[in-house]
Structure formats: structure tokens, C-alpha cells
């Protein structure tokens, strides 16, 4: 009989991220599909009680934790020890966890220590003929595979936005805390803090409904033969603030900074969407001044509704990659949109 361990870590305020509730839902659904496998929850963080209480009624067999100041920060050396302890204590066959920078860093090593195997970026889990089968993408979202494994424990790291978050009443729950000592050899790394982007505005918003992508056309010479970087910045920021969209970019736009070209000051490779950037999940996407070439548009795999504004009627977006292509000057259109959004 399968045993499922759901791992989650707290955020700085002690709460669980949305993706953790999604993975919890995935774990509970999978347990049911497996004919009632037991689900144990393992929490990691400085203080996990509030997090545990928030899922008190989820029906988990038990909630275990590795907590304390050593586990407040996201650090490989201590996180792997925490995960290893939780896994060894519960001896699960399946370990489910949400994708986060913290888990992406530590789970592969932890899986190795537990003599387990790991698959990441899971976008689907099903039970076929009694066996667990998962979906994940290969070659940067070019093709999707369904696969299974014989080895256990099998760590499955689930992409956010794939499952609905678990919704249930909070309550009060007993958390079984496992004592873990962190030796000096695990203290060589110290987390100093978090740097937020240099700009005044936060431009990457994973929870936004809309992804707005700026392509290199914003920083190229416009019809009057001149660069209009300042104006481009105002228009883009204006749109982002008015629409509450998340800001993405094509590679060529942000590459210009490393090549010494004039750039949009508040954008960096962190904004990059595509083959060598991110593959965010948003309901809608609007591309501007971007050719819609394959390496970029693979990053749009999980954008449901896609529209683009480009001066080139033959650009990649027209080739079945967008639902609507507006052949127009994005400078003009975005200015008008900003007026409309500001007025409403």
C-alpha cells in the first residue's frame, strides 16, 4: 500500500504558500485514487503551528514538522537534513511537494540521501492500472510525457497552478515535531536576506491574471528613426500598474543589457519568458513588439488566451501562436489602453 508524504515549507510570515495547498489537494486526490493511501504532512519552517492549523481538517493521518530558527531560512544544508528526517521517519512511497525555489534547491539532494528518485515540474498525476503515472514536459515545453517509476520513495515536485488549492476549514491540530540538530558543517552557508528588484514597482507577479510581454521592438528605432526608451518605459510601467499584470520580456530585449545597448531600466533576465527563461502560468497574455518566435513562445505554453501587438503581419504570432494578432504600433495602442484603463 502506498504511503504519501506531503512536504511543505512556510513563508516568512509562517503561512503556507498557495502552491502548498494545491499540492495538498493533489496528495489527497491521489490517495483517494490509490484506494485510500495514507497521507502524512511534513512541514518545515521556523514556526509551523499556524500553517498546520490552516490544514487541520484536511484528513491527514498526522502532521509532522521540523522547525526552529535553523529552518527559518531557505538553505540547502539544513533543508536537506529536514527533508531527510521527515522521509526517514514516515517511510513513504511517494513524496509530494510544491515547486518553490526552496524545494527546487533541496529536494533533489534529499531524494538522493533517501535513496529515492525525483521528478520535478509535474503537471499531472493519475493512477493507471493501480500505478502512479505523472505528466511532465521535456525540451522546454516542447513535448509532454507520461511516465512512471519502479523505485521508491518517489519524490514528485508539482508545478503551481496545476491543481486547485485545497480548501477546508482551519482548526487546531497537534504537530509532531521531530528533533533535528544542525551541525557546524551545515552552517557554512548563511542566508543574509532577500533583495527585491531595483525598480520602485514589483513587476513579476506570479498570481496576476495577465502576463504582459515586452519585446525588443520597444528599444529599437521607431518610425521617426529615433529611439524612444523613456517613452517605452513610461508606457510599459503605466500598463503594468493599471492592469496589475506581471511583466515578462523576450530574450532579445533583456540581452541588450549585457551587450551594452540602451535598455528598459526596470527589466532584467528575471523577466525573461521562453526557452531560457520562465514558463509562467497566467490566464491571459499580451505580447508587444515581439516577433513570437518559437524559443520565446514555448514560454507561453501555460498562457491560455494569447494576443499580440506587432507591426509585422507575418510574425510568429500570426502562425497559429496567438488567438489575435493586432498589426499596429504598440506605442500608440498601449498609450490608448493606458488612457482607457486609467479612466475606468
Amino acid at each position: 500500500m502506498d504511503k504519501i508524504l506531503l512536504l511543505a515549507h512556510t513563508q516568512t510570515d509562517g503561512s503556507l504558500p498557495k502552491a502548498a495547498y494545491e499540492s495538498l489537494n493533489a496528495a489527497l486526490t491521489l490517495a483517494a485514487d490509490l484506494g485510500g493511501a495514507a497521507v502524512t504532512v511534513g512541514l518545515i519552517g521556523a514556526d509551523v503551528q499556524a500553517a498546520a492549523d490552516s490544514i487541520a481538517t484536511c484528513g491527514a493521518a498526522s502532521i509532522l514538522a521540523v522547525s526552529g530558527e535553523d529552518f527559518a531560512a531557505s538553505r540547502y544544508s539544513s533543508d536537506t537534513v529536514a527533508v531527510e528526517t521527515l522521509v526517514k521517519e514516515t517511510a513513504p512511497t511517494l513524496v509530494l511537494a510544491p515547486t518553490s525555489s526552496r524545494f527546487s534547491r533541496c529536494l533533489p539532494g534529499a531524494a538522493y540521501r533517501c535513496d529515492g528518485r525525483i521528478e520535478t515540474h509535474i503537471t499531472g498525476i493519475e493512477v493507471v492500472d493501480g500505478a502512479v503515472q505523472v505528466q511532465r514536459w521535456y525540451y522546454r515545453q516542447r513535448m509532454v510525457a507520461s511516465l512512471s517509476r519502479v523505485q521508491r520513495p518517489w519524490f514528485l515536485v508539482i508545478d503551481s497552478g496545476v491543481f486547485e488549492p485545497w480548501q477546508g476549514a482551519a482548526g487546531s491540530v497537534d504537530v509532531q515535531t521531530l528533533e533535528v540538530a544542525i551541525g557546524d558543517d551545515c552552517q557554512r552557508t548563511k542566508v543574509l536576506g532577500v533583495q527585491t528588484p531595483d525598480s520602485d514597482a514589483q513587476t513579476i507577479r506570479p498570481d496576476a491574471k495577465l502576463l504582459f510581454v515586452a519585446g525588443a521592438g520597444w528599444t529599437k528605432k521607431q518610425t521617426d528613426g529615433q529611439l524612444h526608451i523613456k517613452q517605452a518605459e513610461e508606457l510599459i510601467l503605466g500598463f503594468i500598474n493599471n492592469s496589475k499584470a506581471s511583466l515578462g520580456s523576450s530574450k532579445s530585449l533583456v540581452d541588450q543589457s549585457s551587450e551594452g545597448g540602451e535598455v528598459i531600466s526596470f527589466m532584467s533576465h528575471l523577466n525573461q519568458v521562453g526557452q531560457t527563461g520562465s514558463t509562467p502560468r497566467h490566464l491571459k497574455g499580451l505580447a508587444t513588439c515581439c516577433h513570437g518566435e518559437e524559443p520565446h513562445t514555448v514560454g507561453w505554453r501555460f498562457i491560455s488566451e494569447r494576443r499580440a501587438i506587432s507591426l509585422d503581419p507575418n510574425c510568429g504570432w500570426a502562425q497559429g501562436k496567438a488567438d489575435v494578432l493586432y498589426v499596429a504600433d504598440a506605442f500608440e495602442v498601449i498609450a490608448k489602453i493606458n488612457e482607457l484603463l486609467a479612466g475606468s
Binding site: E293, E294, N314, C315, G316, A318, Q319, G320
Partner: peptide
């Protein structure tokens, strides 16, 4: 036909 007869731009892509 999107397969063999495609636009010049598509051939490039």
C-alpha cells in the same frame, strides 16, 4: 496547407 505549402515566413521558422 501548413505542412508542405507554407508561407515564406513559416519556411524560415
Amino acid at each position: 496547407d501548413g505542412q508542405l505549402l507554407i508561407s515564406h515566413q513559416d519556411a524560415l521558422l
